[in-house]
Write a protein that binds this DNA or RNA. Structure first.
Lengths: 150, 150
DNA sequence: CTAAGTGCAAAACGTTTGCAGCGCC
DNA sequence: GGCGCTGCAAACGTTTTGCACTTAG
């Protein structure tokens, strides 16, 4: 945890930015809730518990800054709010999302399912892929278990 | 074109809705620009050329209605605006998007690349897939050709 | 001292909604 | 003459911005 903050601090410094207390609080919240896909509002409320004087705008500015530095990733599941998650350190390491249409939970698949598909797309469409997004919508194992036990 | 409008008219009627002039103008714009992925604002401006008296709210309501009837599909590429495209007639027929980060063009891949991947996900994660979204971000063949010729 | 960073409030953005009026069966 | 549909304007929730103040190097 500490060393990850230290790393982010260095990334900020190398681009001429500072790790202010507000930014540090925001990063901590993101680290502590790495499993979830927090919205800016979520982050704001959690940060406010540690540092009540922080403003929503600062959280937005920090999230945008961290996105620019590619520390976090801004994702959009189509529900009108942006969510944020840490980026994998090694660029090749992709992951995907399973969104439950019943309970709304977002699970992750950390395996890279698209290696072959990407190669095919690059070749057949002469398209140089820099990133991809893959989400599955459906019913998660929890909701399936629940409906079966009824 | 005419028969497609007729079909949509029937779909509306079968659910107790009418094909009003405003709705018809909207559908026509969607049909005429099927290649593009128009935002609500885009549709509004194009419809306004044919029917200047139309309101933006009506366009939104029409697009929502057509989405409900599964005539069109609301998609979100993460740029903050919803876009719309016609749905494939046969539900099994998926397609995916190639978004160019240089020129912004959205191309389509009509092949279903995910058949095997879906089976794997359903089995390994006990997740019942109802839908999926796959987009690749990168540099399209046009921009690649352009940068090479410089 | 200077520039970056902050909090607040106001603005902007895409989208939705309330409502009075209109037009079609 | 009732009801679906429309246009307008106002409201909405999320995100951005302008500005004066604070802080760190």
């Amino acid at each position: 945890m500490e060393e990850r903050i230290e790393r982010i601090k260095q990334q900020l410094h190398s681009h001429g930015y500072k790790l202010t207390p507000q930014r540090e609080a925001t990063v901590k919240v993101l680290l502590e809730n790495e499993e979830d896909h927090l919205s800016a509002e979520d982050v704001y409320l959690l940060v406010k518990e540690k540092a009540p004087e922080i403003g929503l705008a600062t959280v937005y500015r920090t999230l945008e800054l961290l996105s620019e530095l590619k520390v976090i990733h801004k994702i959009n599941f189509g529900d009108g709010v942006a969510r944020y998650e840490f980026r994998a350190e090694n660029a090749a390491h992709h992951h995907h999302h399973l969104i439950c249409i019943q309970c709304g939970t977002v699970d992750e698949i950390v395996e890279d399912l698209l290696g072959d598909v990407e190669k095919m797309v690059e070749r057949d469409f002469n398209f140089e892929i820099t990133d991809h997004r893959l989400t599955f919508h459906g019913i998660c194992h929890r909701c399936k278990a629940e409906s079966e036990s009824e």
